[in-house]
């Protein structure tokens, strides 16, 4: 016997999580594009968009609380609702990384980029792509994909290390560049953390489908790996 009303609400909930995810995905790409083009007004728009992300997260949170209060979810339903609560919180924090990058662009003012951005946009593209597939895997409860995506985080970590080494080389050659290097390093760090959080979403997918709550890829580098 299907619980038609509840299941319709669960579907709406998943749709809302996907909408929030695409807002966050677009924001990370836009924030790096704005930095690349040194487009301050585009970065300003990211800050405005982040407010919408936060608003959407609170909307979903209250939708979730109402479902928990009124439907007494158990077993798979309970794991799904608890995981959505966790994932929207991850997405909100991931949105903050875009805001961080937008703020860097704004604070840089007229200063030119220290170097052309090559690996940084790759990091953003890779992170956005991982997020997109992770959320698809979440709504489809595709645990095979959910277990595979976190391994790709190593590529983002490798790009981060690449950016870090290049920037350090420049700074060592000319210590006056340290502030401009720092801006780019923080940008890369935001992107590295963004991809890390995709792993947390994948862990929830496995939890919803199997009830197993465990870390997937514990080679995750918090900042950078020792060379």
């Amino acid at each position: 016997m299907p619980r038609t009303t509840f299941e319709t609400e669960l579907k709406q909930l998943k749709d809302s999580v996907l909408v929030l995810g695409s807002m966050v995905e677009q924001a990370i790409l836009d924030s790096v594009e704005a930095l690349k083009k040194r487009d301050i007004s585009a970065s300003q728009k990211i800050l405005d968009a982040d407010k919408l992300v936060n608003k959407k997260r609170f909307e979903i949170e209250s939708q979730l609380l109402i479902l928990i209060a009124t439907q007494q979810p158990m077993a798979h339903d309970l794991r799904l609702l608890a995981s959505c609560m966790e994932i929207i919180s991850e997405l909100e924090r991931m949105g903050d990384y875009s805001k961080g990058i937008a703020n860097i662009n704004i604070r840089m003012g007229d200063a030119p980029l220290l170097k052309p951005l090559i690996d940084v946009p790759r990091m953003a593209q890779k992170g956005a792509d991982m997020l997109h597939r992770a959320l698809t895997a979440f709504v489809e409860e595709d645990i095979e994909t959910a277990r595979a995506i976190p391994v790709e985080d190593d590529e983002v970590d490798a790009l981060f290390n690449q950016v870090y080494r290049e920037l350090m080389t420049i700074v060592i050659g000319d210590p006056a560049t340290i502030e401009r290097a720092n801006w780019l390093l923080w940008t890369a760090h935001n992107l590295e953390r963004f991809a890390d959080r995709v792993t947390n979403i994948c862990e929830r997918t496995v939890f919803v489908a199997t009830g197993e709550l465990a870390e997937i890829n514990d080679t995750d580098s918090e900042f950078w790996k020792p060379q």
Partner: peptide
């Protein structure tokens, strides 16, 4: 039983989809 039941019929019952 209520968080991760092993049996599909248990799952259907505790999530209210029995029958």
């Amino acid at each position: 039983v209520f968080l991760r039941p092993n049996n599909k019929r248990t799952e259907d019952y505790v999530t209210g989809r029995f029958g």
